[in-house]
Design a binder for these strands. Structure first.
Length: 484
RNA sequence: GCCCCUGUCGUCUAGCCUGGUCUAGGACACCGCCCUUUCAAGGCGGCAGCACGGGUUCAAAUCCCGUCGGGGGCGCCA
């Protein structure tokens, strides 16, 4: 809070989300993006999208599109970009060479195999080994020879010996001795930059003031700070987010089930529910547990209120949140989504949008309270939209095997047949009267009707169900009693 | 192996900075009861947590040290 106030006065906040396009928009990446976005919007700053596609072998245009699609769906609109690193290759190269000129970096002619061999001879299988600066010590003459040979060369950063301390906005002070850091490669021998170089050059070029990213980058940060210094610039602020874990406390991955944002869309979740869910991992937007509007989240967001520990992904919580959202939405708002879902399940009829629009909205209202995802609507709406019922066997056993039904159901059917106003309160009145007259519990009729009309032992309140299904269909379905 | 980060109910979190108001609050999940026509929703109640050990202090979930657990990094990947 204190910090963001200060920044607001001195300069505009600029943050970025910089995924590498090696997969779909992962739920963890979406959360990182969300926190960047919330921070930018809270500070009235800029949110920049950058695609880190310097690893050509693993990147593809298709994946980039998938990421953009996911961000758009979540509503995380960006102000600048997408900027593709693959289009800036020359710049990185130039910057690396400049560092060589300034003696902050040097050419390395070592072949990967050579390094492997030297590493292997070191203790612990080389796990502790750091680049031995072989090429730093090369004589000018030897260098000329190697150049003449046309040996490919990489550029390595010359790591100075010192202590690095920085103040992480989430973790507080973090300090490291650089003697634990090897002379890392900046520019690969194929002329492409490594992550450390491109990220620093870009963050500098794009005027990034706050780097908000996963805490798997904590160990990389000192290297990058060193780079900022050698570019004679001051580093941005850093905020390292705790990564989402699966239920086994390991970094969330495909093993844990659905992790693609778009998959959640297809499974019937709303962006607002997902955004609430993601932000409520590591952050509490308020006192109550509920769906917060985007405006509320933006208003209340603060980096220093984020917790340090890794949250575990809990699908049950997402379902609950999504269900909360659905039940507080108006039927009108829900209609387009339900329509899409019914189309997908081949249950849609054009008249639902025309002469039966009113009926359709009432159906949505009836179903929304017990739906956790949009998918639930197509399952539950089926008996209302089609006559092809399937009867739950356990339900048949439980509710349709009573001896008395054979004699009583036809009587109730007669009652219904005589009704002019087939609406919920009247249906209830008629049914209860019949039950009383016959000396049976109304529940006997109610349960049997539910089985006959819906096919399932569960449904919304039966009288409202019957009203929506309508008199004709109700009577027709009652007639099937003998055949079940 | 080295370095770094992290640790409040099963899960998400409030509290920690600024010790006492914390016999640690809320929510999800689970269990029970109420409501009731089933389910859901709602209401009420229950289960369950400060990783451990030292220290500082009249007083520690809160401050300090250590231990243990979990995670990440140590690439010509990002």
């Amino acid at each position: 809070m204190i910090y963001s106030e200060r920044v607001r006065i001195t300069s505009m906040v600029r943050v970025r989300f910089a995924p590498s396009p090696t997969g779909h928009l992962h739920i963890g990446a979406a959360r990182t993006s969300l926190f960047n976005w919330l921070f930018a919007r809270h500070c009235s700053g800029k949110f920049i999208l950058r695609i880190e596609d310097t690893d050509m072998a693993r990147s593809s245009e298709k994946m980039s599109k998938g990421i953009l699609e996911g961000l758009k769906w979540l509503g995380l609109n960006w102000d600048e970009g997408p900027i593709f690193q693959s289009e800036r290759i020359e710049i990185y190269k130039k910057m690396a060479e400049e560092l060589v000129r300034k003696d902050h970096a040097y050419y390395c002619y070592c072949l990967p195999e050579e390094i492997q061999n030297r590493k292997k001879e070191a203790p612990f299988g080389g796990r502790d080994w750091k680049y031995d600066r072989f090429c730093l010590k090369l004589s000018e003459e030897r260098k000329r020879e190697l150049e003449k040979e046309g040996r490919p060369k990489a550029i390595r950063f010359l790591v100075p010996e010192r202590e690095i301390e920085y103040r992480d906005l989430i973790h507080g002070s973090i300090s490291v001795e650089t003697k634990n850091i090897e002379d890392f490669v900046l520019l690969r021998s194929d002329g492409l930059p490594t992550y450390h170089l491109s990220v620093v050059v870009d963050d500098l070029d794009q005027g990034i003031t706050h780097v908000i990213r996963g805490d798997d980058h904590i160990s990389n940060t000192p290297k990058q700070i060193l780079l900022y210094k050698s570019f004679e610039s001051s580093p941005p602020e850093f905020a390292h987010l705790a990564l989402i874990f699966g239920s086994d406390k390991k970094k969330l991955s495909k093993r844990h089930g659905v992790t693609s944002v778009i998959q959640f869309k297809e499974d019937g979740y709303f962006p607002l529910a997902i955004v609430n869910f993601l932000s409520q991992m590591s952050w509490s937007p308020g006192e109550e547990e509920r769906i917060y509007s985007v405006e509320e989240m933006v208003k209340g967001f603060s980096l220093d209120k984020l917790s340090k520990g890794s949250p575990v992904f809990d699908l049950a919580k997402l379902e609950w949140l999504n269900g909360q959202l659905i039940s507080q939405m108006e039927a009108e708002e829900l209609a387009p989504y339900v329509t899409e879902e019914l189309r997908r399940e081949d249950l849609w009829q054009e008249k639902l949008d025309k002469e039966m629009r009113e009926w359709f909205l009432r159906l949505i209202n009836l179903l929304k309270e017990r739906s956790h995802t949009i998918k639930d609507f197509s399952v539950r709406a089926k008996p209302f939209l089609t006559d092809g019922l399937s009867y739950d066997p356990a339900g048949i056993e439980k509710y349709l095997k009573d001896e008395r039904l054979g004699k009583l159901l036809p009587k109730l059917k007669e009652d219904f047949l005589l009704m002019e106003d087939f609406t919920s309160p009247h249906i209830e009145q008629v049914l209860r009267q019949r039950a009383e007259k016959e000396g049976v519990k109304a529940a006997l009729f109610i349960h049997a009707l539910r089985m006959l009309v819906v096919g399932e032992p569960v449904s919304p309140g039966i009288f409202e169900v019957l009203e929506l299904v309508g008199k004709d269909k109700t009577i027709k379905r009652m007639g099937k009693f003998q055949n079940i």
